[in-house]
Design a protein around this nucleic acid. Sequence first.
DNA 1: TATACGTCTGAGAGCGTTCTCAGAGAGCGT
DNA 2: ACGCTCTCTGAGAACGCTCTCAGACGTATA
Lengths: 355, 355
Amino acid sequence: MSKLKPNANSHQKAKDLNLEDIAKEAGVSRATVSRVINNEAYVSEETRQRVQHVIETLGYSPNLRGRILATGRTNIIGVVIPQSLATVFDDQFYFPTLLNGVAQAANQRNYAMLLWIQESSTDEERFYERILKNHLMDGVLLASTQQNNPFIPRLLDTGIPMAMIEHPEQWADRINFVTVDNQAAAVLATKHLYRQGRRKIGHITGALNNIDGLKRLEGYQQALAELGIPYHEEFVVEGNFESKSGYEGMQTLLKAHVDAVFCANDQMALGALKALDELGVRVPGDIAIIGFDDLPTSERNNLTTIHQPIHTKGAQVTHLLLDQIEGISSGVRHVLLPTHLVIRETCGASITQRF
Amino acid sequence: MSKLKPNANSHQKAKDLNLEDIAKEAGVSRATVSRVINNEAYVSEETRQRVQHVIETLGYSPNLRGRILATGRTNIIGVVIPQSLATVFDDQFYFPTLLNGVAQAANQRNYAMLLWIQESSTDEERFYERILKNHLMDGVLLASTQQNNPFIPRLLDTGIPMAMIEHPEQWADRINFVTVDNQAAAVLATKHLYRQGRRKIGHITGALNNIDGLKRLEGYQQALAELGIPYHEEFVVEGNFESKSGYEGMQTLLKAHVDAVFCANDQMALGALKALDELGVRVPGDIAIIGFDDLPTSERNNLTTIHQPIHTKGAQVTHLLLDQIEGISSGVRHVLLPTHLVIRETCGASITQRF
DNA sequence: TATACGTCTGAGAGCGTTCTCAGAGAGCGT
DNA sequence: ACGCTCTCTGAGAACGCTCTCAGACGTATA
């Protein structure tokens, strides 16, 4: 070796090797080393071997910062979690699972994930200024279920590739997204209660400024219509996805003498179950309950619910985004993931119906 | 304006402005613009104003990629969540809360957060190769409670600034960390049960290859010793932090006729409560239960528990790391955050004791 | 033999900043 | 008038990579 690794014994700031060092050592040019590293064609097998060998013995790996500047690509995607979601939701299951899905897909395709949790309103501005305008990220994943999120058009204006984890509402024709067929799932849930012989089916809605909440309500209404059951206003209580609103909503619905309740998510269903438990109402004897999400807790509570593939959702939306970034796909793509009913005990289905 | 913003009407790829553009427009050099942007001294007020004005009217903001290469700093910190934690834990509250804390502190100090969830074992290698060796991050936050995590010495070897969210065990003298005084908290919990008149106090441990689990067990033992109560082996069951192990552990402890149980976390305490509920054992009448963590669910279940400031933990450890990165602090720093007892109903404390 | 084409390689520009250095000019004391 | 210091500014190198271009060489084709 004609060149010593500088400061090889200094623990603190061993100057990193760069392309030039490898080039010199291997007796080739920087360009050739670059070609070897990026697995490009037009390098003779002999040269490739020699360069590879030098790279390995010296333990070189390319400096991402230089590459980023040269290529204009960072291989980083941003995941933005708006304030509303970060603080309001008490469902602590959704995001970790979603992020796991995103991480898996991103890792697989050699991207890293920049997580941006907007805790305060100034965070949004900071994100916009610092990160977005300056192209630190190749694309953005936005988790938003809030209606008319002003962040969306802003993001669109920058022209940065983006995809959403929920339905983007009025911007749907311009944005890739993955979501679950909320309405169909709600129809499924409601009809399942009907099939158990229930006729006075109530509904505790999710937050109605939220597309998921809205779609689930519409599904409930659609099911009733298709079943020929009249819609009773007093059978519907507006909740907000938090368990407390399920707890209180259930107390209201009891006065309307429902015999079944479809809750727009499991958190509220658990709240409802707690209310029923405290009042000594039997489940599913007196009232059948069905939720939405299939949280881990729901299994422990034997709650019948709609399962949605959250992990898959995260992975899929990431692939959508990366396809767009890498120019693999053209045009906007939408994915509607299927849900399925998980029958446990709170709906009153008999064992035979369960299998 | 002598120069038009190029492609100002093209939505797709409006070429970004750079320092040069601003410099030309303001009739100064690149260096001066850079000085203005970075708020350096030695720029005349008049020049500063003029440059600032051009920057604002043209809507320029500096390209981070260029800056990153020039400064060698990315203003990105990495948060690594090892596989063991991402998949094993069913406690879905801890991480989101922790991340919120990290995000808050990082945002505040103008850093972004790169989240690295190690789902598969190859992810660790990839992290090491791609991200770490290439200095894409200025520092790393490691969440690990696993004993003898081989990742730690590896990370130390790279010399990258790092901090840990749990106790780093044998590397404690070389690593910044923030944790909670698990042992003291466990003493507190155990003695609280004693003060309620309980004498046959059991313990369902956490995973014992985990420093938190270990420290809580030691705290339990210390309390017994200080209270002069002999240690009964059959009063201690090994759990793994998951609710199921609490559920099963409780069944075992019932056979040992304990009259109180300190569970090493709330998940297990909830599992224990479920077991007791199913068997018709009264809480706190027959058996008192105390947990650890203070999850949101715990409040709903009236579980007495130890509260630990998770959000603060995330924020503090981030400040520790950033201080190290920015050279504000010298030497290794450790922070032990205080916990406190949250008295609810499952411990049998009377109202007066609660306030 | 002349031409064409495919393979391989190196020189050097370019990405957008920061940072060092040198120099111009102003103000001041001697 | 001179030297000195202090403020302000610009030129240009540096960061570490990619990518284009041109040229050298070898082989196949006319």
